[in-house]
Design a binder for these strands. Structure first.
Lengths: 293, 293
DNA sequence: ATGAAAGCGCTAACAG
DNA sequence: CTGTTAGCGCTTTCAT
């Protein structure tokens, strides 16, 4: 102990990791760290990781599937003890093949055989049913969807919920436009809606960023919200409550989501497969971009 | 090569790191990943790190100096090749002592002897002088400051610029209230301003989150912005342009900042100390929370 | 050119 | 209970 102080000795975590075959690092892959949805997940995950002695290595893949694979490969070579992947865009086959090589894995918003990875999914289907029901209750009949990437599992679930609910009301989806999941995507989407010439009185968006971009264009074109067109987003990011008019949205407990994913991952690392899959219910938050309940 | 395929061999980065005494990991410490200022820095840093073969290990210290030290220690034990620290809150002594043990380090918004660490600083002093000048030019005479943590170097620089500019106009700072650098901090700050009973016609905020929280309270109390009180934020986060009224602010090139820090760090890792310190000039962005120029 | 061997710093197993 | 040793998987040096 005297020598420790004398030489300012620090244990070398690398060497320790090599010996005990555990790096003490868990990876977290997110599509875009600049999208405010993900930092809260990261924070939840990190808050759960540190007390358990793990360091969180979070990687941003800037919405690029090739980079997603490359990053996952890097993490595996670093012998991370486990990996959490948010909204993976890879094909099932490639994803499962790679993830199988991990000691432990948890997928957020993607399903997988429980032997390969634990899963945490937001029930966007149910959430979107609530959103559509609310719109129809307020006499909206011409509903459009500003969707996300086709490769996104969450996008498919949202669409499924929307179609199902519309069907229940004897309605059809007026328009379905894929958008990149950011403000620019919403701007482009809005233009596509307006240029289509179709009658639209409500737009549901894949996420709040798209909704915010859309809102900007509609206001510019002097379209009254919600009078002419009601808008609903998804995620409930900070900006959703701040824009004008404030945005109705599906709130997702993002920090809880991250923490739950991390706890599940640690359970799997320790070979305790207590819970195999968790489903989180989003909550419909009504603000001025749709009329009251 | 046949065997490589056969056995699905993957090089063990840990073992390699142990041998060559380079982990290939660079650390990035940010005070709060949920504050939209930082994800853009992270992205810039990551985008610069990957082509150079480094993996970015980004750590969130949730505005807690104790955790800041703990995290830095963890990174050192992992033998990271270098560290970038954003807005470090530690005392000079502790910070320098720890950072000295790194192979390479870069500090963002904190100064240090160039032998210990490279630095990237935003010239908040100059930025705030521009902000005050603009307010005074529009006949604001009773200016208050919603500041940040006293331990923040950036806070001191902002205050210095404000005081200097006010002095040049023969004015004094009406009120100086420290706020936690988030929306709640702005809400608390607004209450403190209003309860002070002092006459105030402009408020400059440490960052946009504080300004946004403040804006909410002012609107609630039916105070007209900018007519009664002008508000200026700092950072130009996404939400700044979206709130009502849109927020005037000091724009900082966040992604560039992160990328510049990473390039400087890599230079230092490679023993090329090309640039020792960089100063970034913020840009005054005028929106409706202050009157036009 | 290709191959053998030493050793990075740690832990776990074993001997004293 | 303390002390020694082998070996984790890689790179680098040295001998063939």
């Amino acid at each position: 102990m005297a020598a420790v102080r004398e030489l300012d000795y620090r244990p070398n975590t690398l060497a320790k990791g090599l010996k005990i075959a555990r790096s003490g690092i868990v990876g977290l892959i997110v599509p875009d760290i600049v999208n405010p949805f993900f930092p809260e997940i990261i924070r939840g995950a990190e808050l759960a990781a540190r007390p358990a002695g793990y360091t969180l290595l979070c990687c941003n893949v800037v919405e690029d599937p090739a980079r997603e694979e490359e990053v996952l490969e890097t993490l595996l070579n670093r012998r991370v003890d486990g990996v959490i992947i948010c909204s993976a865009r890879m094909s099932d086959k490639r994803l499962f093949d790679t993830v199988k090589r991990c000691k432990a894995a948890v997928l957020i918003n993607r399903s997988a055989p429980k032997s390969i990875a634990g899963t945490i999914e937001v029930d966007y289907r149910r959430g979107m049913i609530a959103a559509v029901d609310h719109l129809v209750r307020n006499d909206r009949r011409h509903i459009a969807y500003a969707g996300g990437h086709a490769t996104s599992r969450g996008d498919q679930q949202r669409r499924q919920g929307i179609l199902e609910a519309l069907d229940g009301h004897g309605l059809e989806l007026v328009l379905d436009v894929p958008c990149s999941p950011d403000i620019q995507g919403g701007v482009a989407g809005a233009t596509a809606f307006l240029d289509s010439g179709r009658q639209i009185d409500a737009i549901i968006c894949y996420n709040d960023l798209i909704a915010i971009g859309l809102l900007g264009v509609l206001k510019e074109r002097s379209i009254a919200i919600p009078h002419d067109i009601a808008v609903i987003g998804c995620d409930d990011i900070l900006a959703a409550s701040l824009v004008n008019p404030p945005l109705s949205t599906l709130r997702v407990a993002k920090e809880d989501l991250g923490a739950a994913a991390m706890r599940m991952l640690i359970d799997r690392i320790d070979q305790r497969h207590i819970q195999q899959g968790i489903v989180i219910e989003p909550e419909l938050v009504l603000r001025a971009s749709t009329e009251g309940p």
